[in-house]
Design a protein around this nucleic acid. Sequence first.
DNA 1: TTGACAATACGAAGCGCTTCGTATATACCC
DNA 2: GGGTATATACGAAGCGCTTCGTATTGTCAA
Lengths: 129, 129
Amino acid sequence: MHESPPRPSAGELEILRVLWSRGPSTVREVWQELSATRGTGYTTVLKLMQIMAQKGLVQRDETQRAHQYEAAISDEDTQRGFVVDLLDRVFMGSAQRLLLRALETKQGRTEELDEIRALLDEYEKGKQE
Amino acid sequence: MHESPPRPSAGELEILRVLWSRGPSTVREVWQELSATRGTGYTTVLKLMQIMAQKGLVQRDETQRAHQYEAAISDEDTQRGFVVDLLDRVFMGSAQRLLLRALETKQGRTEELDEIRALLDEYEKGKQE
DNA sequence: TTGACAATACGAAGCGCTTCGTATATACCC
DNA sequence: GGGTATATACGAAGCGCTTCGTATTGTCAA
């Protein structure tokens, strides 16, 4: 057990984000959403999604001609994977330092601080049960 | 201006960490510290550091036969670079979500919460001046 | 001077990720 | 059926990162 969550590549992550927000989708649908911002070709997205299916990052339903793809890993787990990696490769495991740097990049938004305090309270409370 | 901080590769980061903690060092010194954990060859580290010098990640003093290398980017800036990237590639800019995931990975350490609260207070205070 | 050692320089291979061109299969319409 | 549009499958090239083998240069001592 204790399999550490996968850290999909940049391209894979973009596709996963579409699948997380859209739910099960065809390659074309993903491609359309992606090509709004990035200018990648259709077959590029296709190939990537095929590889992702092989890796187990997405699950594929082939009953229709246009296959349906669905994320096979959750956004939460994926986020955790990236944070864990960053935490010990860059921050030596210190969540404080991580937070400190995160705050520095968001100067000007003071409300965020209060929201974070609220988050801490809630998190602490949830832990007691 | 507003050049976004570089995000050194995995290998480059390991070397930078040694330089940050040791200060200016020779390839051999870096290699020795690294080979305590990883089994990389000497010339591998050398090549990497040469490339880093080209990229401007380190500065090289060639007056001695054994060149001295020194980090040319700060650990703070580098950390910021990684956080910014993670923040908008994975967390859509939300520092709260980032923190939430970070906390989940550190279950059991309740003291950390208080330390983080202290950090928030201090950060808020420093901002007022 | 020469031998032994230690440093840098260079080239190339391997791997993973990304990208795309092309081939092939399937569905639909006239 | 035949043609067109739309899928998937496959192969390969390019790039960046890592790794290492080998060549070259410099240093010191006997």
